[in-house]
C-alpha cells in the first residue's frame, strides 16, 4: 500500500558545477514511474529541513533505476548532495500525473534550463515517433542532458541566451519558426521557466496546436493534501502535485511578475 520507502542511493555524482545526478532503485511492488512524474525525497529522521523535496524523474536507466538530476539550491539539496552511494534516503512516489503519450501528430518538446529535466524520459519514451526537440538555456553549461535528447532527436535544436551553444536567443524563436514551416499536426510538450511556458502556450494557442506543460511550485506534501502548491487554471486553483504537474496548456492561466507572455523567455 505505502509508497514511502527507504532505499540506498546507488549513485550521486556531480555532473556540472553545483548539479548532481543521483539514482536509486524502487521496491518491486512500486508501479513503474512515467515521464512527467516526480518523487518527494528526504533524509530519514531529519527535522531541519523538515519537508521532503520534489524531484522530477530524469530517466529510467536500463537496469530500471530512477535517475534524478538536481541543482544544489538550499539546505535540503545540499544535504542530499553530501550523501554518497549506499546512504539511505526516504522516497515518496512516483507522484503526479505523467505526460500523456497518446497524442496526435509529431511530438514537439520545448525545454528551458534545468526545467527541461522531466522532458528527458519523455523524449526517450517518444523516441519511436521521431520527436522534434527544442532546448534553451541561459548558457551552454546548463544544457546538461543534451546527449540524451540527441538520442531521441539527433537534430535537437539548441539555443542559448549568451550564444555559447547553438542559436543565440530564446528557445521560443526556432520553435515558432518550426511551427510556421510544418503546420499544426503536432502536439507540444513544454517544461521550463514560467515565462517560457507562457510564451510557448501563447504560440500554440494562436495556431490551434494542442500541448501540455509541466509546472513547478513550492510543495509540502506532494499528494494533494495540503493545497500548498496550487496553480491558477480556467477551472480555478488546481494542485500542481496531484492534479498536475502536467496540465493541458489551455487550462493554465499564466501570471508572473515582470513581462507579458509574448515577450518570450529563456
Amino acid at each position: 500500500m505505502s509508497r514511502l520507502f527507504k532505499v540506498p542511493l546507488l549513485s550521486n555524482t556531480e555532473v556540472a558545477d553545483g548539479h548532481r545526478l543521483a539514482s536509486f532503485a524502487l521496491p518491486r511492488e512500486t508501479r513503474a514511474p512515467q515521464a512527467g512524474q516526480f518523487f518527494m525525497v528526504g533524509i530519514p529522521g531529519l527535522q531541519d529541513p523538515l519537508l521532503k523535496r520534489p524531484f522530477s524523474l530524469h530517466r529510467m536507466t536500463d537496469e530500471g533505476r530512477v535517475e534524478i538530476l538536481y541543482r544544489i539550491r538550499g539546505k535540503g539539496t545540499r544535504l542530499l548532495a553530501e550523501r554518497t552511494t549506499g546512504d539511505v534516503i526516504e522516497v515518496l512516489g512516483p507522484l503526479g500525473k505523467p505526460f500523456p503519450l497518446d497524442s496526435t501528430g509529431r511530438p514537439v518538446l520545448v525545454g528551458g534550463g534545468l526545467g527541461a529535466v522531466p522532458l528527458v524520459q519523455l523524449a526517450l519514451s517518444l523516441a519511436g515517433r521521431s520527436p522534434r526537440i527544442f532546448l534553451g538555456a541561459r548558457a551552454g553549461a546548463e544544457l546538461l542532458s543534451l546527449d540524451w535528447f540527441r538520442k531521441a532527436d539527433p537534430e535537437t535544436v539548441v539555443s542559448t541566451e549568451n550564444g555559447e551553444a547553438g542559436l543565440k536567443g530564446f528557445v521560443t524563436e526556432p520553435f515558432r519558426a518550426y511551427l510556421e514551416d510544418s503546420g499544426p499536426t503536432c502536439t507540444v510538450y513544454a517544461c521550463g521557466p514560467t515565462p517560457m511556458l507562457a510564451a510557448v502556450s501563447a504560440i500554440c494557442r494562436d495556431r490551434g496546436i494542442p500541448g501540455y506543460v509541466s509546472l513547478e511550485e513550492h510543495m509540502a506534501c506532494g499528494v494533494g493534501a495540503c493545497m500548498g502548491c496550487v496553480t491558477e487554471t480556467v477551472e480555478g486553483y488546481k494542485s500542481v502535485c496531484r492534479e498536475g504537474p502536467v496540465f493541458p496548456m489551455e487550462q493554465v492561466r499564466f501570471s508572473f511578475p515582470g513581462g507579458s507572455p509574448e515577450r518570450g523567455g529563456p
Binding site: Q47, A220, G236, Y237
Partner: peptide, 20 residues
C-alpha cells in the same frame, strides 16, 4: 473557497508556515 494566491507554504526551522 478559492484560497490565497501562491506562495502558500514556506519551510522554516523544524517547521513550516502556511497560508492556504
Amino acid at each position: 473557497m478559492q484560497g490565497n494566491p501562491v506562495p502558500r507554504v514556506v519551510e522554516t526551522p523544524c517547521g513550516m508556515l502556511n497560508a492556504i
